[in-house]
């Protein structure tokens, strides 16, 4: 993909993420904890995988999201 100065996502300081298969933009500098807060999710019930690597829950506040990160947010649901 070619970056141009007219690309609004680059100019406004927002980064592109793929969260659970959907495109999403967040402010540059957003942490995992920040994203969960934005999504109204409780950090203690959600497991976060970034680019196929699990982020330990204790690190949610420190890990900053990067442009083009692919995130999977999972939790326990009913199952047999």
């Amino acid at each position: 993909m070619t970056e141009t100065t007219t690309n609004p996502t680059r100019d406004t300081g927002r980064i592109n993420l793929t969260v659970n298969g959907e495109e999403r933009k967040v402010e540059r500098g957003t942490t995992v904890a920040g994203l969960l807060e934005e999504l109204d999710l409780e950090p203690r019930t959600v497991v976060v995988e970034r680019n196929r690597e699990i982020i330990p829950r204790d690190d949610y506040g420190e890990v900053t999201l990067r442009d083009d990160d692919t995130l999977e947010l999972v939790h326990f649901v009913g199952g047999g």
């Binding site: 969260v19 947010l73 649901v77 009913g78």
Partner: peptide, 28 residues
């Protein structure tokens, strides 16, 4: 037993099973 699935971002987090099932009462 419980399953691992994506959080549905369009819905409330209440769908997570731990909102209904106490993990201190049952071994998950």
């Amino acid at each position: 037993t419980v399953a691992v699935r994506r959080v549905d971002l369009d819905r409330s987090s209440e769908e997570g099973i731990l909102h209904h099932l106490d993990p201190d009462e049952f071994f998950l």
